[in-house]
């Protein structure tokens, strides 16, 4: 890979669940000019003591290595894992509201079925779909909904985990 080629990386960060920890991570990215394409965070331990941040970022190989090293030296960070180093699963969830009547409405429902989106709310003039999948699947579905009355989207951002027996701990 050339020095300037950009790549995308999905990075999991296990952090102490304390106040300000997300600000530290985000501040690191804004302060050093790194990209955040996508970010999710939630507690993952039963006692709520640790949170897992999943970041999707992009940059040159050198920048991605820097990002990992900079994250790793934050005091409340337990572990940094670059999931893009190996096979991994990444999913996000979207709630999608489509407004319309007649044939467009019917078409939206047919497509939703093909994408295995669930209808979680409906009126005679609207559907709200719930769709889970990889980012590109969600993007593709939204693209199809656009001419059919796409009105509103709420996405969770990416949750990711390594395939097989590999774990972050």
């Amino acid at each position: 890979m050339s020095d300037t080629a950009l790549r995308s990386a999905t990075i999991s960060v296990l952090v102490e669940n304390e106040s300000g920890v997300l600000a530290r991570v985000i501040g690191l990215f804004s302060g050093r000019g790194y990209n955040i394409d996508n970010l999710t965070v939630a507690p993952v331990e039963q006692d709520g003591s640790k949170s897992r941040i999943t970041l999707v970022t992009s940059g040159t190989a050198m920048v991605i290595e820097q990002i990992k090293a900079q994250l790793d030296r934050l005091v409340p960070v337990y572990k940094v894992l670059d999931l893009s180093d190996g096979p991994h699963l990444a999913r996000e969830l979207a709630l999608i509201k489509v407004l319309g009547t007649g044939e467009k409405r019917a078409e939206a429902l047919r497509l939703a079925d093909a994408f295995r989106a669930r209808v979680i709310d409906a009126t005679t003039e609207s559907f709200t779909f719930e769709l889970t999948g990889a980012t590109d699947k969600l993007d593709a579905f939204l693209e199809l909904m656009r001419p059919l009355g796409l009105a509103e989207v709420s996405r969770t951002g990416v949750a990711a985990i390594a395939r097989g027996t590999k774990t972050i701990t």
């Binding site: 050198m62 290595e65 820097q66 090293a69 900079q70 790793d72 030296r73």
Partner: peptide, 11 residues
């Protein structure tokens, strides 16, 4: 001592 100092500007 700081891994983030390595390969930051010079490989």
């Amino acid at each position: 001592i700081d891994p983030a100092s390595i390969n930051k500007s010079v490989m």
